[in-house]
Design a protein around this nucleic acid. Structure first.
Length: 102
RNA sequence: GGAGUCGGCCAGACAGUCGCUGCCGGUUAGCCGGCGGAGGAAAGUCCGGGCUCCACAGGGCAGGGUGCCAGGUAACGCCUGGGAGGUGUGAGCCUACGGAAAGUGCCACAGAAAACGAACCGCCGAUGGCCCUUCGGGGUACAGGUAAGGGUGAAAAGGUGCGGUAAGAGCGCACCGCGCGACUGGCAACAGUUCGCGGCACGGUAAACCCCACCCGGAGCAAGACCAAAUAGGGGAGCAUUGGCGUGGCCCGCGUCGCUCCCGGGUAGGUCGCUACAGGCGUGCGGUGACGCGCGUCGCAGAUGAAUGGCUGUCCUCGACAGAACCCGGCUUAUCGGCCGGCUCCCUUG
């Protein structure tokens, strides 16, 4: 999963994606205690990612995605994180399209 | 009205919509409907208990914990009431609050001395010695007496006054304080000071060792129980027996290899444990209270990559600290703002 996956990142998240052989996208979360010390922050970040993924799922290619939070994420507002995720999904879609053509 | 103190409570609200999840019902079966879905600390994991497995005849030692008394409790290092000491004008608040006349150790610096009860300065020098003498006495870097004064220290051997004396001293007396015993009140801790005895002996330190009393088996839900592939291996029965290989000169026998079935252990994975109770609310009774008993009533998260959220609108006082993971009782720590009640002090008015 980690080897040979497409990778996009910004200051809040690192996103990995790899073709999974099914017909729909699947999501995995990796929010470490090191990235977000408080349980409340970890839960908030996970919920935001799930919600964003749920909205974007029809537009995504059939890949397994792992979203990892970075230590800057807990300090950001929910709106900032939601915008960041939208951008990341779009970049991911483009990247996968390119790699599947090549 | 202001200041303070103690106790209790709330933790944005409502609507729409899209989702997640547990249970129940339906079902045209990865669909629909209904109901439920984080906290007062869910946190720290510091104590106590339930539950589970392991160990265990009984007793002792070691180790750890607790430590004024009584009560509450399943239990506690918690809570309630009381006592003592400290603190605040007060309501209140704080206290590792057993034992130092069992033993051992320690008490820095300063100071003469920090403890088998002490002379540095000072005071005295009555008594004995020495010197002088006008024979009245005087002097003394002698022996010695002395804890009143100075000084050191966190702490210096009861305090004040009078008597007393050479100077002093519980040496004597009065009052205060202290110790021991009796008595009285109280379950007790303790108090009273009524009485007697003792002139007073017992410096502090036990978060120093220690002594005394009481308590404590270990590990934790990844506890533990059940179901159970694939692969490898184990045990048993049967089949093939005219088989191959090994042992052996050969036969029997023994070992091993094949096929079928059964059994047990056990990994992945799954299920249970998993939420109903030392339970919440109301009420009556008992108790100063913590709490207990009775009756009625309610059903109140159960996830397992781990749910409890996103968006929109309206309103307000613009929302802190923070997220369950087997379950309870406490303690501690974090916390925007607000509400209710008891009590205290000060000011003003009547």
């Amino acid at each position: 999963m980690f080897a040979g996956a497409e990778r996009v990142a910004d200051r809040y998240f690192t996103v990995l994606a790899a073709t999974n052989g099914t017909d729909a996208a699947r999501l995995g979360l990796a929010i470490s205690r090191r990235a977000a010390k408080r349980a409340v922050d970890r839960n908030r970040i996970k919920r935001l990612i799930r919600e964003s993924f749920r909205h974007q799922r029809p537009a995504l290619p059939p890949v397994d995605i792992v979203v990892m939070a970075r230590p800057t994420a807990p300090a950001a507002t929910s709106e900032e994180l939601a915008r960041a995720l939208d951008t990341l999904w779009q970049r991911l879609v483009k990247r996968c399209a390119v790699s599947s053509r090549s």
